[in-house]
């Protein structure tokens, strides 16, 4: 077992454990924190795969921006109390079993992927495609059109924030 495998194992266990904690935590704030841990574990995987750019962007975007917003909203709503009433235990169990079955089916379907063939190995710690220079070059040549188009997405999200967040004048008059 070399260091890479060790790291892979550790990160995987961490990722799955914290994902499980995310789902099972009663307190939403804990869920957020566990999700952040998951993101870090996944970022670790990216670094193992030498996808440095994505590793960093993952942290900046997900951990640094998205999860802050989540935390923010949860704190604003003061959801720290365990407001979620106890759900039917059986339903929970059913959900878990259904998920497990889904996993089993998917894995069983995909187990045929030949893991012995050298082409079916993910290259670790090598290859420069994950470096920002290469990604940038590709992004601004081949993928420049979708890149530009994705700005539309942000514009609409921006408008959305305005439309949904702005206080209605009539509303104030009513209160």
């Amino acid at each position: 077992m070399n260091i890479i495998e060790l790291l892979f194992g550790t990160l995987s266990v961490l990722a799955i454990f914290s994902a499980l904690m995310l789902v099972t935590s009663k307190n939403p704030v804990y869920s957020v924190l566990w999700l952040i841990v998951t993101f870090f574990a996944i970022s670790g995987h990216y670094i193992l795969l030498n996808a440095q750019f994505l590793a960093i962007v993952n942290i900046i975007v997900y951990a640094g921006a998205i999860m802050v917003l989540f935390l923010f909203v949860i704190m604003l709503m003061n959801l720290n109390k365990e407001t979620e009433p106890q759900k039917n235990r059986w339903l929970k169990l059913a959900g878990a079993v259904a998920g497990g079955c889904l996993l089993l089916v998917l894995v069983a379907a995909l187990k045929d992927v030949d893991s012995k063939k050298p082409e079916n190995f993910a290259l670790l710690n090598g290859g420069n495609t994950g470096l920002i220079k290469n990604l940038g070059k590709e992004l601004f040549t081949t993928y420049v059109v979708p890149f530009e188009i994705s700005s539309v997405l942000f514009l609409s999200a921006m408008i959305g924030a305005v439309v949904l967040g702005k206080k209605e004048k009539q509303n104030e008059a009513a209160h």
Binding site: I16, A19, L20, L22, T38, K87, L91, G99, L102
Partner: peptide
């Protein structure tokens, strides 16, 4: 897939 399934289970049960 494991992570994905955990996500799905979460969506379904929470």
């Amino acid at each position: 897939l494991a992570l994905f399934t955990i996500g799905i289970v979460g969506v379904l049960t929470r």
